[in-house]
Write a protein that binds this DNA or RNA. Structure first.
Length: 275
DNA sequence: TCCTGTACCTGAAAGC
DNA sequence: TGCTTTCAGGTACAGG
């Protein structure tokens, strides 16, 4: 399930593999994957060069010539890979970008949750889904004072607040459980109960954890692979996520699983207590 | 405005 | 063994 580190790893892979390639044809097998007119999506991209691949939060921004951008979200199980034209089409391949060198950039998505949208480059900041995104989880953008103020205005639990993408972007279910464990904060703690000291620790752990996960090439739990079809390495670093019944690495108390905001949630009942 | 619940999807695992 | 049910979760959207 791609979160920021996985999307960043895909972005880097796509840059290496297909930057500079020209699209000769786009085949769309599952039109619902395309937001807006899927035929227009295909005809507009014909002849365009993929000039760069950017990222905002968990959204990939594929930059094409003549001022076009494809905004792509992998959601749960979306993945891109490159194969030669004529190679067997795998099950769950929904969009194929034919390239001028005989290769194909293929988008595969078992759950069909992923979405793509074609927009004019520069207008992505006006898309509601991108407009609402909080800062990137890096020290230059993500400021602890604004984070604390944002949390003080919320009464809901910290876990769904972090999954919202409004206060900071890039966290998903795995990394939220991890950073809350690292910060000794119970996932059901109301946001406005957190002290400045709690928020400072949480802020620093979010930056540190996501940077480490990017370095490791992301986390593979179910099916994630990057554009080279490599799995991530960060699943071996997880301390709490999916560790139900296993001893907490800090205090040896068994990790528990509860449901918070309809999401499976893993925490240490000793280290992480509700305030 | 904020918050909660649900739909979208399929495959794996669990239950019978 | 084979069928049915439950679960996994990121985002958009509806409704309170």
């Amino acid at each position: 399930m791609p979160e920021l580190p996985e999307v960043e790893t895909v972005r880097r892979g796509l840059r290496k593999l297909v930057q500079g390639s020209r699209i000769t044809e786009v085949e769309i097998m599952y039109p619902k994957m395309i937001e807006g007119d899927s035929r227009e999506f295909a005809t507009t991209l014909r002849g365009k060069v993929l000039e760069d691949v950017d990222r905002r939060g968990k959204f990939l921004l594929l930059r094409f010539s003549d001022g076009w951008t494809v905004v792509s979200h992998l959601r749960m199980e979306g993945k891109y890979f490159v194969e030669k034209k004529g190679a067997p089409i795998r099950k769950h391949t929904h969009v194929i970008f034919n390239l001028d060198d005989g290769r194909q950039l293929r988008y595969n998505d078992v759950r069909k949750f992923g979405r793509m949208r074609l927009i004019k480059t520069g207008s992505e900041t006006q898309l509601p889904s991108l407009k609402k995104l909080g800062p990137e989880p890096v020290a230059a953008d993500f400021k602890v004072a604004a984070f604390y103020q944002g949390l003080q205005k919320k009464k809901k639990a910290i876990k769904p607040a972090l999954l919202d993408q409004n206060l900071v972007t890039g966290l998903g279910n795995i990394y939220v459980d991890e950073v809350l464990w690292m910060s000794k904060i119970h996932p059901q703690t109301p946001c406005n109960h957190l002290t400045q000291a709690d928020v400072q620790i949480l802020h620093d752990n979010i930056i540190q954890e996501l940077a480490r996960a990017v370095e490791a090439g992301g986390t593979t739990i179910r099916s994630y692979t990057d554009a080279f079809q490599n799995e991530g390495g960060f699943q071996f670093e997880l301390q709490a996520y999916q560790k139900t019944g296993q001893p907490c690495p800090r205090c040896q108390t068994p990790i528990e699983r509860i449901v918070v905001g309809q999401r499976g949630t893993h925490f240490c009942p000793n280290c992480q207590q509700v305030k």
